[in-house]
């Protein structure tokens, strides 16, 4: 079979093999690039940087393990930045598996890297509650209507960080990570807009275009996909160089993503070449 015929009738499994290799090889050889934060990511960083010490920040884990490789770098970087700035961090989850991820992030980042931070005074896990966007609508006016205890079952009134917190309006920033529903869009529509609370966050690359319409009026910033996380990591390392020696999975995984993009482009070019040859030969119109 001539090369043209082979390329024209390329088996989809061949494409799959090349995509797999384009991810595996850069991972093995640790091909990595540097990043620079775009304005839409830098805005989030600047907002956190500008918040006074002790400000309250919600970090909502609105995703599941499926998208964790893409979203987790954002969660790690945000957690580090929030605690580095001595802000008060309130973890919660609109997705059930999000609570597990929040617990895992707490163990890996907060307990390991910020041993001086005290649970209940500097950070808190509110856990998962069912109710999707309507949970947000309820806690906009009365947080204790839905959260009577934290994730560990401790009475919410006995937690120092919860003193003076009545509802979402007592928070200075809401960060939602995910991109599905409920997620950042619901935080904007049900908390940010009606409560005039700054909202920002991160979403998978696939979902990010859905959220651009809310930027910058209703959403002060957005981290889109792996690149968004990598950009935030680079912004963090620029101001806090100590994080150059810590894990930065976003930047590390941009290498495989870059190569995979190139492989897809090569296949699209091959597809177009065979298409034009076929058209020239009159096989396709």
């Amino acid at each position: 079979m001539p090369l043209y015929e082979k390329l024209k009738n390329i088996d989809r499994r061949v494409i799959y093999i090349f995509i797999a290799l384009s991810v595996i090889i850069p991972l093995v050889f640790k091909i990595a690039f540097t990043e620079q934060a775009s304005p839409i990511v830098q805005n989030i960083f600047d907002k956190i940087e500008s918040l006074p010490e002790g400000s309250r920040v919600i970090l909502s884990y609105d995703y599941s393990p499926s998208t964790a490789p893409e979203i987790q770098p954002m969660a790690d970087a945000l957690t580090r930045h929030i605690l580095e700035k001595d802000l008060r961090l309130y973890n919660m989850a609109l997705w059930a598996p999000g609570h597990n991820i929040a617990t895992e992030t707490t163990d890996r980042i907060i307990i390991a890297e910020f041993p001086e931070k005290v649970y209940g005074e500097d950070y808190l896990n509110l856990g998962f509650k069912a109710g999707n966007e309507f949970l947000i609508a309820v806690i906009l006016t009365d947080l204790k209507k839905m959260y009577t205890t934290d994730a560990k079952g401790t009475d919410i009134d006995s937690i120092p960080m919860m003193q003076g917190v009545k509802n979402l309006r007592n928070f200075d920033l809401i960060l939602s990570l995910g991109g599905g529903k409920p997620g950042l869009k619901e935080w904007i529509l049900f908390a940010g807009d009606p409560g005039h609370i700054p909202v920002a966050g991160g979403a998978t690359a696939v979902s990010a275009p859905n959220l651009y319409p809310y930027y910058p009026e209703q959403m002060l910033g957005l981290m889109g996909g792996m690149k968004g996380g990598a950009e935030y990591e680079s912004a963090l390392m620029k101001i806090y160089p100590q994080y150059k020696n810590k894990s930065h999975p976003g930047i590390d995984l941009m290498g495989p993503q870059a190569i995979a993009h190139l492989v897809i482009m090569i296949f699209v070019i091959i597809g177009n070449i065979t298409y034009f040859i076929a058209r020239k030969r009159g096989e396709e119109r």
Binding site: A68, V268, G271
Partner: peptide, 23 residues
């Protein structure tokens, strides 16, 4: 879960290969 989601990378490639033609 991660395995199922990662299928997207492969399917995006094959769908792009088929769909992106300068017709």
């Amino acid at each position: 879960q991660a395995t199922m989601f990662s299928l997207l990378a492969f399917f995006v490639a094959s769908a792009s290969y088929r769909a992106f033609r300068a017709k």
